[in-house]
Design a protein around this nucleic acid. Structure first.
Ligand SMILES: [Mn+2]
Ligand SMILES: [Mn+2]
Ligand SMILES: [Zn+2]
Ligand SMILES: [Zn+2]
Lengths: 145, 145
DNA sequence: GATTGACTTGAAAATGATTTTCATTTATAA
DNA sequence: TTATAAATGAAAATCATTTTCAAGTCAATC
């Protein structure tokens, strides 16, 4: 019988353990940080932020942990202009990202219905559309002032 | 009096010359390739394809030429999963990309109207939406068989 | 069609992000 | 506890991209 997880961090750690991973100190610190972050973080950012309280952390471990979290669908990669990636906690279901261009705060939203656009585009181009990628950019409530 | 350009390659070269760039052999070869390509090409691909007929080309020149073409809005960067970029001839106006997941062939389409979705999302999140990023994926006519 | 000088080029080295290697440490099951 | 396979961190390797610089080439002028 599984008791419901106390919070999101516990939930992630449970998922990791259930998948056969060991719950090490570095892993726990990285998970705590990512669960709490309102914006996508890059590997070096995570490295620096975790080392404030856990100075031994290696950058390689950050990469390896992100790989695990992405494989389990707990975090999502966010593409940057320069080609590097940041990582943000994922949500379930069909949702897209809305990102603040000033502070980076990210929110998920749902409810996009692209079916008419897709049907129209299919007719026009002869392509079969199977997937889509949508992202909105703007200012978060705080950054609107 | 400007005569109309004979074809797209000439048009690009005219634009480059008008912007003060010199029309060198390497530049011409890269432009010819990009104008004719139905799919986005990466720097190394361009390097290899051009060297078939122009073996002296340096990879650095590919990067520098792509920089110029992007600055003039003649090509557009297409983001890849792994973070690298490919380059595709751009079109004018508000258009988005439809990319074949099998062969890479890319087409532009217009006519997306996201205003209702954006208004709804703004109300729900408190964000001010200023921009959007949309890309469709599927199979091109040839790859549908 | 020569001459000239700034713009371009290509090779090599530098950079920066990410991956691989490997000896050591650590979590967990026995 | 003890054993052992998984995880870690340091260093080296890899890969895309950028910088540096001496040599080559365009295009304006003679
Ligand atoms: Mn959608
Ligand atoms: Mn649009
Ligand atoms: Zn903000
Ligand atoms: Zn195709």
């Amino acid at each position: 019988m599984n008791l419901p997880p106390l919070n999101l961090t516990e939930e992630w750690l449970d998922r990791l353990q259930a998948s056969g991973y060991r719950l090490t100190q570095p892993l726990r610190r990285i998970v705590e940080l990512l669960v709490a972050s309102p914006r996508a973080l890059g590997p070096i950012e995570i490295y620096d932020l975790v080392r404030v309280h856990y100075p031994n952390l290696g950058l390689v471990t950050v990469y390896r942990t992100l790989e695990k979290l992405e494989a389990l669908g707990l975090v999502q990669r966010v593409h940057q202009e320069d080609g590097c990636h940041r990582y943000l906690r994922a949500t379930q279901g069909h949702q897209h990202l809305l990102i603040c261009t000033r502070c980076g705060r990210a929110t998920y939203f749902a409810g996009d219905d692209l079916s008419r656009l897709i049907r129209h585009t299919e007719e026009e181009t002869g392509y079969l559309v199977q997937d889509h990628w949508l992202q909105l950019y703007g200012l978060c409530p705080a950054c609107r002032q």
